[in-house]
Structure formats: structure tokens, C-alpha cells
């Protein structure tokens, strides 16, 4: 049957952490937590998996390095080799010392920008996106935990959240 979501509001990060731990050990399902700043250890306490952003960045960096090598090999060696101050224009590897700066720059360029774009896409943030925090106070100094409940235990879950010291407990309107 229909699922319900209860929202518990806290005023402090330590208090929230305590409540999150209690909720998890009380076998209730935390759907989401909204916080005004990064609360350290919250992801572990709420049972989130580690993020893979760093791995994507590494892969994008390798891609950038590959693009740089391909581009300079094509332009300077294959397509139109030129004699510039007698530097070797026939072999990529022999001319490479001059290409290192741009190989580095493009590696960083790809790793940084594509990772940030991945972050924006995965977290669904972009211009004209509507904010989804349920209470405007959660970007100021309040912390909101969403816990799911069934129709038959809404009241008991709400009482549980009340007992953790939540300032307000409300039912999410679907």
C-alpha cells in the first residue's frame, strides 16, 4: 500500500548525527537528509556508498592525455610536419619534450571539467533546476531527515522520531 514519508527537523549537526544513528539501529529507513553544510561522517552513518567521482576524474584525465597526444601527433607529425629551428618534426617521441606542457594542460582540463559535469548531472543540478529541499531553513541552520513509514506504523515511527529530540515531525505531502 501507499508509502508515507516523515520529516524530522533538527537544529544541530551533532544532534542530527545521533538521531541518524538511532534511526538506523532502530531499523527505520532513512530516505534522505538535507543539511546546510557538509556534516562529516554523515554519509557513513546513514549508510551511503562511497562516491566514485575521483575514479571518473582519473578516467577523464587519461582521455585528455590521449586526446593531447593524438592531436599533436596528427597536427605536428602526420598532417603538416614543419622544420622549426631544426627540431625533430618526423617523430613524436623525439619532439615530445616540447609537447609535455600541453599534454599536461589537456589532462587537467579534461579531468576537471568532465568530472564537474558528471557531478552536476549525477546530482541533477543545473541552471533553471528547481530546488528540492523541503524546508528553506535547511540551507541556513536546520537539518532535515526523511524517514519512510508504512500506513500501519506511521504513528510509531513518528513517535520514535519525536523521541530522538526532533524539533518538528511532519508528514511529507506527496
Amino acid at each position: 500500500m501507499a508509502n508515507y514519508t516523515l520529516q524530522a527537523l533538527y537544529e544541530d549537526d551533532d544532534h542530527l548525527m545521533k538521531a541518524v544513528k538511532e534511526t538506523r539501529s532502530g531499523n527505520h529507513h532513512i530516505e534522505e537528509v538535507y543539511t546546510p553544510f557538509p556534516v562529516h561522517g554523515l554519509d557513513k552513518a546513514a549508510g551511503l556508498k562511497p562516491t566514485r567521482m575521483a575514479i571518473t576524474s582519473f578516467m577523464y584525465g587519461v582521455l585528455g592525455l590521449g586526446v593531447a597526444i593524438w592531436m599533436m601527433n596528427f597536427m605536428m607529425i602526420d598532417d603538416w610536419p614543419r622544420n622549426i629551428g631544426g627540431k625533430p618534426s618526423f617523430s613524436y617521441i623525439q619532439n615530445m619534450p616540447a609537447f609535455v606542457p600541453i599534454m599536461f594542460e589537456l589532462t587537467v582540463f579534461f579531468a576537471a571539467h568532465l568530472m564537474v559535469i558528471t557531478f552536476y548531472m549525477r546530482s541533477k543540478i543545473w541552471p533553471f533546476k528547481k530546488a528540492e529541499n523541503p524546508d528553506p531553513r535547511t540551507t541556513d541552520d536546520h537539518f532535515l531527515m526523511e524517514v519512510s513509514a508504512e500506513k500501519n506504523n506511521v504513528q510509531s515511527v513518528a513517535e520514535f522520531l519525536h523521541a530522538t529530540g526532533a524539533k518538528e515531525v511532519t508528514l511529507k505531502q506527496s
Partner: peptide
């Protein structure tokens, strides 16, 4: 950008 402050976002 519609930042909501979810724990995964943080």
C-alpha cells in the same frame, strides 16, 4: 542550480 543539500550531493 537548484542546490538542495542532499547528503549524497554533499
Amino acid at each position: 542550480f537548484g542546490w538542495s543539500g542532499r547528503m549524497k550531493d554533499w
